[in-house]
Design a protein around this nucleic acid. Sequence first.
DNA 1: TTGAAAGCGCTAACAT
DNA 2: ATGTTAGCGCTTTCAA
Lengths: 332, 332
Amino acid sequence: MPDERRPTLTDVAIRAGVSKSLVSLVMRDERGASPETRRRVLEAADELGYHPDSRARLLRSGRSRLLGVVFGIQHPFHADLVTGLYSAARETGYELALSAVTPERDESEAIRGLRQDRCEALILLGPHSSAAALTELAARIPVTVLARGLKIEGIDVVRTADATGTAQAVDHVVSLGHRRIAHIDGGRSPGAADRRRGYRSAMKRHGLEPYIWIVPGGLTEEVGAVAARELLNNLPTAVTVFNDRCATGVLDAFTRANVQVPRDISVVGYDDSSLARLAHINLTTIAQDVPTMTRQAITRLVARLEGTAVAGRESVIPPELIIRGTTAPPRT
Amino acid sequence: MPDERRPTLTDVAIRAGVSKSLVSLVMRDERGASPETRRRVLEAADELGYHPDSRARLLRSGRSRLLGVVFGIQHPFHADLVTGLYSAARETGYELALSAVTPERDESEAIRGLRQDRCEALILLGPHSSAAALTELAARIPVTVLARGLKIEGIDVVRTADATGTAQAVDHVVSLGHRRIAHIDGGRSPGAADRRRGYRSAMKRHGLEPYIWIVPGGLTEEVGAVAARELLNNLPTAVTVFNDRCATGVLDAFTRANVQVPRDISVVGYDDSSLARLAHINLTTIAQDVPTMTRQAITRLVARLEGTAVAGRESVIPPELIIRGTTAPPRT
DNA sequence: TTGAAAGCGCTAACAT
DNA sequence: ATGTTAGCGCTTTCAA
């Protein structure tokens, strides 16, 4: 089925009876060709089924107009971010090149692939490379880190104001009348430290310092369930959880233990992942503003590539509380 | 940060004091350079931070050695497949180019991107393009479809023997003593028809035709929960579910309705996704053999590209029953 | 408005 | 084992 050789620009030029330069102009929609020539060229191209070879084109023009994206293929939240990045890139004239991190393919390998493709800049989603590796990388190519706060010379960061997020969660349940509010932690995951800090300071601000209780948790449903079982010994009336996946595990453990949500305990998640929106979960949660985050990441990077400097290294995007069905006033 | 020009092969050649050809050989790990030369070249390359330009390389060699992969970024099972594809491609000398389908980026757009990048072949994960579109595509480029059974001239298919899978599920619960076994269906999703068929014929084979009960379901937790609520009216003793995500929703709905699994009802999922393995879910399920599927997909495609014909259009991989905690003998 | 020629960074074919 | 030469398909001078 396949291959007569793909038609080249030269083929089109011959067929249209003009020079390669003219064909090049016409294909790129530049001015400088007569309407008649333009018509003939387009006709010839169409007849041959010609499509420009982006590799050759980019090789010659010295640019790739490619933005590399490194993401964790197992992370639902990264899927949301990639979706947003595609939309944000659409109108910029840049394309996305995806490179996945899998259990058998680490971040450095993912980055290496992208560099071979001559991406002009890199977007790293919640990277876990060392600061040293990132510093070295940033010295060679513009890098923007998404969804992880770190301060590294030369690296732009776009992230959610995570401390604000958990503070909003605490404020919400406090306003419902809760006082004994626990926090299930994300350990060393991206954002976990800030979320923990936000919880702690909001509790202090409300004069609830004696009730501060931080339980080890993590990224997954499984650790959420474990953490929830720890809470059962001395059930608080509300709990803020590191993320929605973890919160799902929490809900599951509670249900099994015959603890009703929100009657017996209120639960607040984090991320507003599609999980949270499911009718049978219906989780009150903190939404990261994915459209804004991804738009900013792309905008900053493009600006840097075009030489339009952008102020500041860091964009911190405010999150938003989404009230659903897992929070209610405490039983009196 | 910015850019001294990226080092080229010529730069490395000059620094190492050898010809470009030698550098080219060394970088590609071909034989024909002395150990001493090799060492010098690698050292120079390293000092300069040189990475070969794949565009130029591929332009020159007339091939891209790129396999395009179209996947749904929201599908956990696709994540597993992509992970397997990376591993399978690793030793073949081909690279993967990922192109995601998102809510705002459809399959045809994903495919178009890959074709501009001059991928030599395409792997489509559970595609939903029309047969006509796929036929036309396959006329222009080798195509392998993964995880969806379809019979289209010129398209290779690698899929799980889905009918066998649900049959195994039925056999398993029958062997435990169940007779009233329902099936929650996947609707029009890839594999759903076969799984439904497997359920139906296994029920007949066991003389349980009167108990056949197929409830509409789908891909997600949400529809699983809805389907489960429908079962509550007339609870069977076991149910086989279209996939693990859907089964999770089923479990959740049962728990809320105070129906205990597996005491009151046995549940079998499908996919053996990471979800199923979580301790608090611990779902008995049918595992698709991802390593074999992905290896076969890559192998077939590479064989086709190298002209080594492969017999048959279709590889059907047997699935495997994984017994965990959601199945048990019925209460007597 | 048009065309000729010179590369982009690399590999392949042919020397040596 | 090493070097030389000629392009891959395109864009970009620069001259006509």
